[in-house]
């Protein structure tokens, strides 16, 4: 049972990690536009040709 003392903080840390990852993604606008990036990938132009 003593393993729980280790598992408990680990589980919570893991959860916190995912939560933070989600919040960061949210704040950097990764959920703002779900359609256009999917279309961008369809363009067959060679990598490197693209500016910016």
């Amino acid at each position: 049972m003593n393993i729980l003392v280790l598992m408990l903080p680990l589980a919570i840390t893991l959860g916190t990690g995912f939560l933070i990852a989600f919040l960061v993604a949210m704040n950097t606008g990764q959920f703002d536009d779900l359609e256009t990036p999917a279309q961008r990938i369809l363009d067959d132009e060679k990598e490197g040709e693209r500016k910016s």
């Binding site: 256009t36 279309q39 961008r40 369809l42 363009d43 040709e49 500016k51 910016s52």
Partner: peptide
Amino acid sequence: CSSCTHLLEKLPQ
């Protein structure tokens, strides 16, 4: 369609 995306994002070229 997606061509519009490609075209408009190619404006810099």
